[in-house]
Design a protein around this nucleic acid. Structure first.
Lengths: 228, 228
DNA sequence: CGGGTGATTGAGCCCGCTCAACTCTCGTGG
DNA sequence: CCACGAGAGTTGAGCGGGCTCAATCACCCG
């Protein structure tokens, strides 16, 4: 679910280690009856809201999605970003526990929750893949709890950049799909602190920014920045 | 996995809402071949370490367990507390991603990871229960990320006390199984801040402490404390 | 060229951390 | 019975990292 997840797409070489049975792009392989309905969401529109009945499971074809929780006073915590190839929208109960919104214009494939459940009940292999996918999400959540509970602002931003670079192909070049506000709400910081941390990394030559969204990073120098 | 999970035991009435198929105490019902081997862990001993090969899945009979991650410099984040009835030790890969330690003297039932996997491959119903159990853990992790990323110290301690009271039977009376250090490392705070928050709640009559581990709480007054 | 949005930078403050002293409890032994 | 020590918890004083509030800058689109 979150940044650590493998996100192979058809247009990008998969530089991730092989994930047995947890690979979203193979999730419904050999299940021709589960083809998925294409659908589009515009930038900054809600896909589903917290508390709504969970009707669909989603697989991203292109674009990016955030899932988050929002407190009554407006404080927001983004739990995960989902990129092309990722699956999201599973729920243990009938209702969605998170809100999902498109960060950019996003194409998805819809699968009815019921049909996915039915498939899992019939097909042991599919059930195992769904389970492993959920376990992968849990693992990512565990890493994120460590980040939110015990890491400094600079460590959070550095870890975020390293992880998303890996997800986007690992060629040191990153086109951030999300705003500073989204990064801040994912990392448990304010936009100002995110910005200052980025500036700090840039002044140490660990990253090079060209525009707010495009950057080139040096993993070795980023890690060196954390040692002082 | 964490504090929101239902934890019915045979000696305590279940005051939780019914959780279809996710109930740990029924997890292996109807599977007499999966009986589990009793085992004991003394207080403050390691059950398994991060990175070790995952051989077993554990179900707690009595006692309490924490699972955590530790950084090289000693910073620790506890992901979850497990009480009687809880299942823990699932892993998506071959290796444990967390360290598990007994908080108190703890009796568990061991199930070999392989036999659990085999059961899930044969028995669709068991697979569904395991999947739902993992989804429940993920849901708890999502709640905890909001707490760690966006809540104040007082809110964290208040939420923790309310949740653990519910898990321990919901009769307003709590015998904390863990130390202040464990609470702090779960809530992303220091022991001093946890202590000060408890004192603050006590001065508002929202909780009554008798000894560090025993307390009676008033849910309404706790929520009122958060409004100023 | 403006207007609008998002990002950066600056100044000052505050919540939670650090460091340290003190208290409480409990177990052990004279 | 008290003395003592060890470990856990509480309290206090002061600091500092990240937040708040505000101004400025950069980049789009018209």
């Amino acid at each position: 679910m979150s940044l650590v997840a493998a996100t192979p797409t058809s247009v990008r070489p998969n530089t991730q280690p092989f994930r047995p049975a947890g690979n979203p792009s193979e999730m419904f392989a050999g299940c021709p009856e589960l083809v998925g309905t294409p659908f589009n969401y515009a930038r900054e529109t809600e896909i589903y809201g917290e508390g709504e009945t969970a009707e669909f499971v989603y697989r991203i074809v292109s674009g990016a999605v955030r899932t988050c929780k929002i407190l009554a006073d407006g404080r927001r915590q983004i739990n995960a970003f989902h990129l092309a190839g990722d699956l999201f929208g599973f729920e243990p109960g009938e209702a969605h526990r998170l809100t999902a919104e498109a960060i950019a214009d996003t194409k998805v494939l819809l699968f009815s929750r019921r049909s996915v459940q039915d498939l899992a009940n019939r097909n042991v292999e599919a059930a195992r893949r769904l389970w492993n996918s959920t376990l992968q999400n849990l693992e990512d959540a565990e890493d994120h709890m460590l980040l939110l509970g015990r890491r400094t602002a600079l460590e959070r931003v550095a870890a975020f950049l390293l992880t998303i670079e890996k997800r986007l192909g690992g060629n040191r070049c990153v086109e951030l799909p999300m705003s500073r506000r989204d990064m801040a709400d994912y990392l448990g910081l304010t936009i100002e602190t995110v910005s200052r941390s980025m500036t700090q990394l840039q002044s140490k030559r660990a990253i090079a920014l060209s525009g707010a969204r495009h950057l080139v990073l040096d993993a070795r120098l980023i890690n060196k920045c954390l040692d002082d």
